[in-house]
Design a protein around this nucleic acid. Structure first.
Length: 552
RNA sequence: CUGCCCGUAGCUCAACUGGAUAGAGCAACGGCCUUCUAAGCCGUAGGUUACAGGUUCGAUUCCUGUCGGGCAGGCCA
């Protein structure tokens, strides 16, 4: 429909010999009902070029376009907007699309089935997942669903930093617990992890448990002095726990990549050598530096320390080279904003390889911190101190649906406050129930109408004339735009906001109008409308990984 | 000191990326269940969009500066 309108405008411009950019044609969905179903600001934009008043230009456009069967009228409003009002034929055409596409309504093929990877969560295997990881999981998983719906072939990936110093700290912490050294003792590792979960790992280790992760079996020997075994078992234990938490959060991954795998076969060495050969390095103070300043950084960074080991971002560069070689046209990394400084370094490293990677590859979605409050006090999230709110606690207390909704309903780059007490005690007031309730209400009506969603046919909907009805029709035919917007802006929260608005419009309608009425014709029209609404709510919730119950 | 993010109703947040009268939910007040699910609806009240300039037909949105909050700035990860 938008395409149709912009073609009409293009044709008009050609007729008047006006030269325009395709980008200059903006088709909007006005928020006010009496501003029509679509609007364009083309006349305002052309005002300067044509040296005419916007309303005069708009008038010529409207006269040229004339009448069209899909529109009941075109109107010039405000400073010079042209508003398009759908005719009932136009509405029928739009509603037919909903019923013919069903669970695919709203989807598009803008991605052209190209391959896209989204990496998210990527928590270190040094502790349980906390609420911050939950935000990453929710945003990343929703983005994956959204991009699939936009015609991308999506791979969801989790990267484990299982090779750094913090892993040694983990092993040492578990070993200390095995030796009955408590975190308060002076002997406890200085940078050790002090949380109670370390005790759980130690106990499991003592009992010689076996854990299977990603198809591999890890067996605890129970030997207190076997640090290598303690390390491997601890990682397996925590990875397994993280995967379970994520599964309970309806978040799954296609690929798990381990940082340790890049230390095999001299992969890091050869990448560093390539960068060296390309003259993007220099030696200073007995260390090897990367000239990141040539790629926009404010100072150069050490790649290889004087002791011969590599700094943390070097494996990241290798990992991203690996992603590139796997053929991903686009890679989106969802991370906490506290890691934003790595963006420049990773991109710089990839540029220094000189293998044709675009400057702005990979892309990043950064989410800001989640603050947790309980009893009106902030709960500090500190893994080392052992006090934090785990994702698993949150899911069991608040529920998967509500937690997911809450964590994606705000844009990623603003900080959010998660009030545990509110989420727990007043869980019925959580907005997600509001949306699900609208769906459940429709299902109840349909079941009493003995109306299966399968045999609806859109026919005459001229009887749908109330303000609520027109508003709802306008809203549901807007859905495909929102799906596209959420992808282009990499922002799932647009869907959350949209669904809440749609549910609100429906609840108003529900209170105003009855559906199971004697007037068979009107009844049929209304049933058609609410069935379409149910389809849209289902599709929208599905893109957010939230269930759409038929009864509540 | 430098870079990035944020600042909107008492609180938590939106605002279709520059559009028309800045909107929801909590909290407050007043109404609506004999009728398809009241986890709902309707109404009242609540705003100098942190502040000061600039850009233009038009700014919560873009630019500059100031103030305030957060996060980074390591041969830690």
């Amino acid at each position: 429909m938008k395409k149709l309108i912009s073609d009409l405008i293009k044709k008009t411009c050609e007729n008047f010999d006006v030269i325009i950019d395709n980008q200059d044609i903006e088709i909007d969905r006005p928020k006010a009902l009496d501003h029509g179903d679509f609007s364009t600001n083309i006349a305002l934009k052309l005002s300067k070029q044509l040296r005419q008043k916007p309303r005069e230009i708009a008038d010529q456009f409207v006269k040229f376009i004339g009448s069209h069967s899909l529109f009941s009228q075109l109107e010039i409003a405000g400073p010079g907007f042209i508003n398009f009002f759908l005719s009932s034929e136009g509405r029928v055409a739009q509603l037919n699309e909903i019923f013919s596409k069903r669970e695919c309504y709203g989807h598009n093929d803008s991605g052209g089935q190209q391959s896209l990877q989204i990496e998210f969560v990527s928590a270190n295997p040094t502790g349980p997942l906390h609420i911050g990881h939950g935000r990453g999981a929710a945003i990343g998983d929703c983005l994956a669903r959204i991009f699939s719906a936009n015609g991308w072939r999506v791979t969801k990936e989790f990267y484990y930093n299982d090779a750094g110093a913090q892993i040694n700290n983990l092993a040492l912490s578990v070993q200390a617990r095995l030796k009955n050294i408590s975190p308060n003792d002076a002997d406890f590792p200085e940078d050790g992890y002090r949380g109670d979960y370390i005790v759980d790992i130690a106990e499991s280790y003592t009992q010689k448990h076996s854990i299977t992760v990603d198809g591999k079996i890890y067996k605890a020997s129970g030997d207190i002095d076997d640090l290598k075994n303690i390390k491997e078992f601890s990682i397996a234990f925590l990875r397994n726990e993280q995967n379970q938490d994520l599964a309970n959060f309806r978040t799954t991954f296609d690929v798990f990549t381990l940082e340790s795998s890049f230390y095999e076969n001299d992969q890091i060495k050869s990448v560093v050598q390539n960068i060296k050969n390309n003259n993007y390095t220099f030696e200073k103070d007995n260390a090897l530096w990367l000239k990141t300043t040539e790629f926009g950084d404010d100072k150069d960074r050490v790649m290889q320390k004087s002791d011969g080991s590599y700094t943390y971002f070097v494996p990241d560069v290798v990992y991203h080279k690996n992603k590139w070689e796997r053929g991903f046209i686009r890679v989106i990394n969802e991370q906490g904003a506290d890691h934003h400084s790595t963006i420049t370094r990773v991109r710089a490293g990839l540029q220094a390889l000189n293998i044709g990677i675009p400057k702005d590859w990979p892309e990043y979605v950064l989410h800001q911190m989640v603050t947790v409050t309980k009893n009106n006090e902030e709960v500090k999230i500190s893994k080392r101190a052992g006090s934090y709110v785990t994702l698993s606690d949150l899911i069991s207390e608040v529920g998967c649906d509500a937690t997911r909704y809450f964590l994606i309903s705000r844009k990623a780059d603003s900080q959010l406050v998660f009030d545990i007490d509110l989420a727990k005690s007043n869980s019925n007031e959580n907005p997600v129930y509001y949306i699900q309730y609208a769906h459940a209400r429709i299902c109840a009506v349909l079941s009493q109408a003995k109306q299966s969603a399968q045999n609806i046919s859109v026919q005459d909907i001229e009887r749908l004339t109330t303000k609520n009805e027109l508003q709802l029709i306008k809203k549901i035919i807007e859905f495909p735009d929102i799906v596209l917007l959420a992808a282009t802006e990499k922002s799932p929260h647009y869907l959350a906001t949209y669904l809440k608005d749609l549910a609100s419009d429906f609840h108003s309608y529900y209170n105003e109008s009855k559906f199971l009425i004697d007037d068979a014709n009107l009844k049929k029209s209304r049933i058609t409308l609410i069935t379409a609404i149910a389809i849209v709510i289902q599709n929208g919730l599905s893109l957010l990984g939230i269930s759409a119950p038929e009864k509540m």
